[in-house]
Design a protein around this nucleic acid. Sequence first.
DNA 1: TTATTATTGTAACAGTTTATTACAATAATA
DNA 2: TATTATTGTAATAAACTGTTACAATAATAA
Lengths: 240, 240
Amino acid sequence: MEGRPTQNESDAAGSNYMHGLAIDAVIFGFHDNQLKVLLMQYKKSDIFALPGGFIHKEENLDDAAHRVVSERTGLKDIYLEQFYVFGDATRSDPSPMRTIMLANGIAPGNHHWLLQRFISVGYYALVDFTKVTPMPDRIFDGCNWYALADIPPLMQDHAQIIKKALASLRANLDNKLVAFNLMPEEFTMNDLQILYETILDKKLLRPAFQRKILSLGILERIAKKWTGGAHKAPYLYRFK
Amino acid sequence: MEGRPTQNESDAAGSNYMHGLAIDAVIFGFHDNQLKVLLMQYKKSDIFALPGGFIHKEENLDDAAHRVVSERTGLKDIYLEQFYVFGDATRSDPSPMRTIMLANGIAPGNHHWLLQRFISVGYYALVDFTKVTPMPDRIFDGCNWYALADIPPLMQDHAQIIKKALASLRANLDNKLVAFNLMPEEFTMNDLQILYETILDKKLLRPAFQRKILSLGILERIAKKWTGGAHKAPYLYRFK
DNA sequence: TTATTATTGTAACAGTTTATTACAATAATA
DNA sequence: TATTATTGTAATAAACTGTTACAATAATAA
């Protein structure tokens, strides 16, 4: 979203950043058979927002997106996809930002750049939930996973942004081989099927799914097997 | 692209526009069995560019894109798709813009906003070639169709932008029912097949193509028939 | 008027892919 | 050692796509 100067943020009134442009990141993880996204919370208030940030004056847009996601997750290699630009003139509501600035000792004139209109570039990230350490920034003190089913009310058009990100993810699922970024290193065919079913929100038939995935030739079957229930042990797979 | 103030452009040093943000439009048309795009030319020079423009301070991004395409084509209802944002830090080369500004009697300081870095939102438009009247703006005096096969060298990363637009169009061709925007009101099945073949750059088999298109149920067969060659007359179709 | 020619519309068949059913294999528990 | 739940995959059915074939017809030529 807009409204989260990180690092050398409020300094020099933001002269380091491009004005009027922001990045919003929809960071997807998969845990407990649920798709989740990382959300920021402002001091136990009901102000929730997507992780976001600004673009340094000499920084590539993609690099800025990587930086934003990296700072919130602690990850280095991140699967990122730019999916849409949100540019309605009325989408930026300055009031939460004003609250935040005041609380941080910045007395904003009404023409402060952070209170102006922002156009925001949406990126979604697919990460291995088990590898992430959610990290708040200096404005938002909460940074936590929320299942898509129980997302709290969000700032501005951030709910819309999540919706559009999910739609893009769905559309890409079959073309690009994207889902594996949401899995841990080793997983069973059933784990993967549940992930697909969760993203697509529909049941898939087991034999067809297995045949399709294996025919892609991108999985490596690990000799070792799983242990657990009262039944045949499934193979583990790894993405190659 | 960036670098084409239209209308009340250079006035007030561009205070009407958002700075650092531009729109580039790849306007596709279909004529003589070729895909073509509209390009702007600067006073018989070799400076060619995509049609583009800026976003008014209170204007929706999509509205700005419609305005830009409308001004160059004279069309009202335009099929537009936002397909990518180009945000590399080094993509903006200020020198052609400086040339243009000087020639227009604007003496740009080196920090003039038009010479700074721009991030550009790419839109592609699909239009009925026969309905378009290409219209230059006040900076570029040429506005003409160029077949994709013989595009002249373009400013900055505009060649890249066209390439990406075409890739997006191809990807959308089967999902969205997009191709009909490039056809005149009435057309034969063969016309449509040639369009598909041109966009996808591969031959299609006639019976399969006809079956697929008709099964979509979006075409209306017009009773009238075509006249011309020494063979059976094809039906005309209309998009419903 | 009647062939000839080029293309159209569509049927028929073949081949491939996807969906569904079925069942043996096996890991834990009773 | 039988039971149970789940896995891996074979077998079959259904749907879809690719290919061949051919009658219909609009203009031209004989």
